[in-house]
């Protein structure tokens, strides 16, 4: 089971002077259970790509299959229904997701998606409760509050809960931490990791922060000018210095730091994705020198 993106090309506003091809021949498979990070320069087509994953954009040419079902199946009625169900397997959290809130209470806003799915009130309540606990919002404390009284970080949590209430199998997060303060950001990252580990939701995570990507992801996708530049494990991806540079990206800070150490003459292994690994490498190097 997986999301297959087959030779997808996408053109914005075709046949006008403003025509712009944002994706060119993108071909890849996102495995179920993986944590895929997508990185790339501003305008490289990340948001365009992820909007194909739940059928918001229809490829100009090519196909997107979720668990083997074409998201834009147009043939028979059963094909259309299957396509709709497949789209609903993929939850989509937009950049600045809090801008989508509209209900009077937090409960009603999170309940919007499950109600659209046609669930009964009891199921809806159960789902809202679960979604709120997943993003760390107390049910009794928050359910009757207006979403517009909350802080930015809390509003974003409500918005994410609104998607989680659909119980998606795949979750797309487009720069979920943009505009949050450091503490709120770390907390949100932890919660995303929890969702992946405990609820086994397949994550597709768009981010500009290489440190986050190095810690979280088990697959990295670098985009450049609408094309896939590289799709590999973080350890190997961050080794490809030239490719990184071509995409206008920097390696994680810890890697740059270790490289600086090595260039200063300390024989340290520069392969580290997290700060912990980096510290371990440094300790090893220091011990090797002393002993």
């Amino acid at each position: 089971m997986s999301i297959e993106i087959k030779n997808v090309t996408y053109t914005y506003m075709p046949k006008t002077p403003f025509e712009r091809t944002a994706l060119k021949d993108v071909d890849l498979v996102i495995e179920e259970g993986s944590f895929t990070a997508i990185a790339g320069h501003t305008g490289s087509g990340k948001s365009t790509l992820v909007q194909h994953l739940n059928g918001l954009l229809e490829p100009t040419s090519g196909q997107v299959l979720v668990d083997g079902v074409d998201l834009n199946g147009k043939g028979s009625k059963s094909e259309k229904l299957a396509a709709r169900d497949a789209r609903r397997k993929v939850g989509m959290v937009f950049q600045y997701a809090e801008h989508q809130l509209f209900e009077e209470t937090i409960f009603a806003d999170i309940a919007f998606a499950p109600r659209n799915l046609g669930l009964g009130e009891e199921d809806v309540e159960a789902r809202v409760k679960e979604a709120m606990s997943l993003v760390g919002l107390g049910y009794e404390e928050f359910k009757d509050k207006s979403p517009f009284q909350l802080s930015g970080g809390q509003m974003r949590r409500v918005a994410i809960a609104g998607i989680l209430a659909m119980q998606p199998k795949y979750l797309v997060l487009d720069e979920p931490t943009a505009g949050l303060d450091a503490a709120g950001k770390n907390k949100l990252i932890q919660e995303i990791l929890q969702l992946h580990e405990k609820k086994h939701i397949t994550m597709i995570f768009v981010s500009h922060n290489m440190d986050d990507i190095a810690c979280l992801a088990d697959k990295v996708l670098f985009m450049n000018q609408g094309r896939v530049l590289l799709y590999d494990t973080p350890a190997r991806a961050f080794q490809a210095k030239d490719t990184l540079q071509e995409a206008g990206l920097c390696p994680p800070q810890i890697m740059s730091f270790l490289e600086d150490l090595r260039d200063a003459g300390i024989p340290v292994d520069t392969n580290a994705l997290t700060v912990e690994e980096g510290i371990a490498n440094i300790m090893k190097a220091v011990k090797g020198k002393n002993g």
């Binding site: 989509m92 937009f94 919007f112 799915l117 659909m166």
Partner: peptide, 13 residues
């Protein structure tokens, strides 16, 4: 456009 897409992702039709 963006808001419509966000609500479509929540099952709006």
């Amino acid at each position: 456009d963006k808001i419509m897409k966000a609500q479509q992702s929540r099952g709006s039709d």
